[in-house]
């Protein structure tokens, strides 16, 4: 969202950098924010070959469209490891490769100089990247999405985007023009998903959560696959989480509205013992008592 209304909170789509004290960098999501991050990483590397790790929550455009503009991918010698939830790594390659088909982008995947490897993520199955332990968990979003808990430096941060609350089935692989009636099996699957999410974020220092909607907006679009800050608070409150980061702001929310949202939920969070912070572009936070500044 370019323009005057998003100058302070930022208009780029989803992208977060997690850095450990040992210097390991794990990128979560590859929205348009990845372009500036890639420029920074390329500068920081001073030309040395690097291995970059990108965890994708899912492959909707707002979470991948920065990939073709990731500068380190244009230096041979670099490696880019891409992790995502899909049924097979070759399908993943096709889907990610699909965004650089010549119809869409001038440089095809095969012509990108860096080595690019695709890894399939399995909810519940722990992965390790250098000194970071990663637990993926399933989320309730059209066509499926996955959140991640990252543990390193004796602390943890969770990334929970994109997801709706667990009251309607959105994660199936078909178009929804509105919420659909629930079967008993649907209820069981949703309860299980919610349970796994609550367990995954338990004890996290910081939880970054899809809080796209205000409650009145959510009521109109419950099938879009996004949550409200209230729903995020419901997941983290009483779950030993120190801090909640409001994230994935609606494109229609202006900086002034975001100020109001930030103030309103700061207060609501404080009432349940959670420090609520509203993400803005360029913001950098120390995670946990031993996290890097």
């Amino acid at each position: 969202m370019p323009g005057r209304a998003t100058v302070r909170y930022g208009g780029q789509t989803s992208c977060v950098e997690v850095r450990t004290s040992a210097g390991t960098t794990v990128i979560v999501d590859a929205g348009t924010g990845l372009r500036a991050l890639g420029q920074k990483l390329a500068r920081d590397s001073g030309g040395a070959a690097r291995r970059h790790h990108i965890l994708l929550s899912h492959v909707h455009w707002d979470h991948i469209q920065g990939l073709p503009f990731f500068e380190p991918a244009y230096s041979s010698g670099n490696t880019v490891e891409v992790y995502a939830l899909l049924t097979a790594a070759d399908e993943l390659q096709q889907v990610i490769g699909g965004i650089t088909r010549h119809e869409f982008f001038p440089v095809p995947l095969e012509a990108i100089p860096a080595e690019i490897n695709f890894h399939e993520v399995d909810p519940g199955v722990v992965m390790t990247i250098e000194d970071v332990t990663i637990l993926p968990f399933a989320l309730n979003h059209p066509f499926g999405a996955v959140g991640y808990r990252l543990d390193a430096d004796g602390t943890s941060v969770a990334y929970v985007s994109d997801t709706a609350p667990f009251t309607d089935v959105l994660h199936k692989q078909h178009f929804l023009s509105g919420p659909e009636p629930l079967s008993d099996e649907d209820r069981r699957v949703l309860a299980e998903m919610r349970g796994a999410l609550v367990a995954a974020v338990r004890g996290c220092d910081t939880v970054i959560y899809d809080t796209h909607f205000l409650p009145e907006e959510y009521a109109r679009f419950p099938h879009y696959g996004h949550s409200t800050p209230d729903q995020a608070l419901e997941i983290v409150a009483g779950n030993d989480v120190r801090r909640l980061i409001l994230y994935h702001h609606a494109p229609s929310h202006t900086d002034d509205q975001m100020d109001e949202i930030a103030a309103r939920y700061k207060e609501q969070g404080a009432a349940v013992g959670v420090d609520v912070i509203t993400a803005c572009e360029g913001m950098s936070l120390a995670v946990g008592p031993r996290g890097p500044a």
Binding site: G98, I99, P142, F143
Partner: peptide
């Protein structure tokens, strides 16, 4: 396409 957009 469904992978890329919820419009499907």
């Amino acid at each position: 396409a469904p992978h890329y957009s919820p419009l499907n």
